[in-house]
Design a protein around this nucleic acid. Structure first.
Lengths: 222, 222
DNA sequence: AATAAATATGAAAAAAATTTAATAATTGTT
DNA sequence: AACAATTATTAAATTTTTTTCATATTTATT
């Protein structure tokens, strides 16, 4: 994980950096707010730690200005102030979290993990069994590799995952996945199910889509 | 916003509920952990407030079990305990935030807003000007209508939005959008830029992609 | 076991998206 | 203004995806 530490107290910054390194993460240090903005324009980070009190620009100012410009990576503010007013202000200006000094490294790490995990997992993946569907990349991710699904197969799998445990008939799939009125003459659904099934089985070795004769299809995780 | 308050101290729960109502939000109260799980299986909420100390199941247990089952709405824990150990535990079990009692309603509301905003905005939309790119539906959304972009145009626009303000040359676009080594013989980039440009301009009436002769392309929001 | 209905499969046809190729227009420089 | 380099545009070629169609297999019922 790439972390930017914007903190003018060198002791704190260096101690954090060393601890991050011990956990296998790389951290850069910016000594004031301006430098932080500068670093961000040149490199990309997974998370920003901004000290509230810094020369040039305060952490809150950096946070505000980044968010205004559309910056959307997680930001955590570090501060010695502990009254509620500032917390509220920070969160309302687009910070993701807020850690009060003095803090333990464990807490910092836990909060970073929580925030990053959230950014990664929330509504960008649908997870099932030991696999997941990447909703942005339209990719099926397995421990052994990943595969990009064509659009209709992706939409179909997504719909199955959103409705696992429910029997879905062809009329409903046609309507919700293809946005087409169902006509008995087409076998779109069968064909796409077949293709999705073979890809799923090849990649996962499991049979997720069950046919309920006369009723529809069922996505099972058991 | 629909909020579930799982809290056995009725005074606190009712006071929160009343305050939420004043702000225009609807809240349900669950008096213990089991009841919370029960309510969640029946209705959908935008955010969960779980008291740590509750009969039947503790807030942390509820949180753990929901996350294990794949539940992915924001969860905030309320607690009287204030030592770091518990905070770390809570965040690592999938809670999104953690509020120490006694709290002010303003802080609760600010944290809910922060968490929900994050869930909504992070990586499901990239917003620019008065438009947004729906990263799930691969759709460009404008006040007047929306249009589904073909894959390469979508990837290109996404890359521009993630790097707005930076001049992107063809080599870099080829590498990061097409995942191809750049060869001077191809004009893939030019063609796709052209198509994306005309769609963008037709839909938004604005020119977002500027050519910097000899250097590359620049996405500007001015 | 025979039958009819439902589902699965393979391969061709059609449509859509991507890429290439040829040419036109624009830009910076002299 | 003329030139070379760069970028833009148009249209054709290719590839991929989607859909249809014909046929095979499976399932429930008798």
């Amino acid at each position: 994980m790439r972390i930017l530490i914007a903190e003018d107290e060198k002791q704190i910054a260096n101690s954090l950096k060393k601890n991050f390194a011990d956990e296998g993460h790389s951290a850069e240090i910016a000594e004031n707010g301006k430098e932080a903005i500068d670093q961000i324009s040149k490199n990309s980070f997974d998370v920003l730690l901004l000290d509230w009190r810094m020369p040039e620009l305060t952490g809150l100012e950096v946070c505000k200005s980044l968010r205004k410009a559309g910056y959307n990576k997680p930001i955590i503010l570090l501060t010695a102030l502990s009254d509620v007013k500032n917390k509220v202000e920070a969160l309302n200006y687009g910070a993701d979290d807020y850690i009060t000094k003095p803090f333990s490294f464990d807490e910092v790490m836990a909060r970073i993990n929580a925030v990053v995990r959230r950014y990664e997992s929330v509504s960008t993946f649908l997870e099932f069994d030991e696999f997941k569907l990447d909703l942005i990349a339209h990719t099926l991710v397995t421990p052994h590799g990943k595969i990009k699904l064509p659009e209709k197969e992706f939409e179909l799998l997504k719909y199955f995952l959103e409705n696992s445990g429910v029997i879905l008939n062809k009329e409903r799939l046609c309507r919700d996945v293809w946005e087409l009125p169902f006509t008995p003459s087409t076998n779109l659904v069968e064909v796409t199910i077949k293709n999705l099934r073979s890809k799923l089985e090849e990649l996962t070795g499991k049979k997720f889509i069950k046919t309920i004769y006369g009723e529809g299809y069922l996505f099972i995780l058991d």
